[in-house]
Design a protein around this nucleic acid. Structure first.
Length: 255
DNA sequence: GCGACAG
DNA sequence: ATCTTGTCGC
């Protein structure tokens, strides 16, 4: 899945520019996405969905995550592709980059996506969907990390966050699979779901990224989180980017 | 102005 | 996210 077409030169530098970019991309998010045969390309180009690589394989699902070394201004991203049936790792890649943006609630995508796009671009296979560590439509301007990545790549994306952010929810019932609405206190609308992936354990927060519905996003999350609270995709991506950052630091001791 | 705030 | 000790449990 060759590198995606995006120029670092156009990446927002200020919060105002970043917010303007989110408003520009927001209308490009697709709820369920057209049938494969009529599916338009991503916002940046006709064949952006695969970056010019192989067609998406719905039997595969990817997970992405990043780790930081704030002191050296470094960010390491990891992309791990799993077989949706066996949850076996099919392929994994990493990418190192300079931190391109500070952490600002609501603008997380500008901090993490450059490196994530780099890792995804190194994959040989094209997954049918990508699970992100964060939110999708559940966002102040309805363009969280997951939705943003989806619009940029054309790939189907899902957002699975570990905390409620600024949203409201009631505790889901104890059984695995139970869920309750995640609502935006500002508008009252349902922006996602608090989902119990493990009996009696703190829920995860699922929201739609791009080209998928909330129910399917929830089903996919449950399929990926059987033994642990978090999806296997994010667990693998998390350990890989941390491991990579650690050995990178080991080779470049403190200055 | 103050508090809250994905990762 | 990262920092950071010990502790309970499979």
């Amino acid at each position: 899945m060759p590198a995606f077409a995006w120029s670092a030169a156009d990446w927002p530098t200020t919060e105002a520019e970043a917010i303007a970019e989110q408003e520009r991309l927001r209308p490009l998010v697709q709820p369920h996405g057209p049938a494969p045969s009529t599916r338009p390309g991503a916002a940046t180009g006709a064949h952006a969905a695969t970056g010019g690589g192989p067609a998406p394989d719905d039997r595969l699902i990817a997970g992405v995550d990043v780790a930081y070394d704030e002191e050296r201004d470094l960010v390491v991203a990891a992309a791990v592709v799993l077989d949706l049936d066996t949850l076996a790792v099919v392929e994994q890649t990493t990418a190192v980059d300079r931190v391109a943006f500070p952490y600002v609630p609501g603008l997380l995508a500008f901090r993490e996506l450059p490196a994530v796009l780099g890792a995804l671009g190194r994959l040989t296979r094209t997954p049918g969907a990508v699970v992100c560590d964060g939110y999708g439509l559940a966002h102040p301007r309805r363009l969280g990390l997951a939705s943003h990545l989806g619009v940029l790549t054309g790939l189907r994306t899902i957002g699975v966050a570990k905390t409620p952010f600024t949203f409201d929810h009631h505790e889901p019932d104890a059984p695995r699979g139970s869920w309750s609405p995640l609502t935006d206190p500002a508008t009252g609308e349902e922006v996602g779901r608090a989902l119990r992936t493990r009996p009696g354990v703190k829920p995860v927060f699922v929201s739609v990224g791009h080209r998928i519905g909330l129910s399917e996003a929830v089903d996919t999350t449950l399929a990926l989180a059987r033994r642990y609270r978090l999806p296997e995709t994010t667990r693998h991506a998390d350990s890989l980017c941390r491991r990579t950052l650690a050995e990178l630091q080991r080779g470049t001791p403190a200055n």
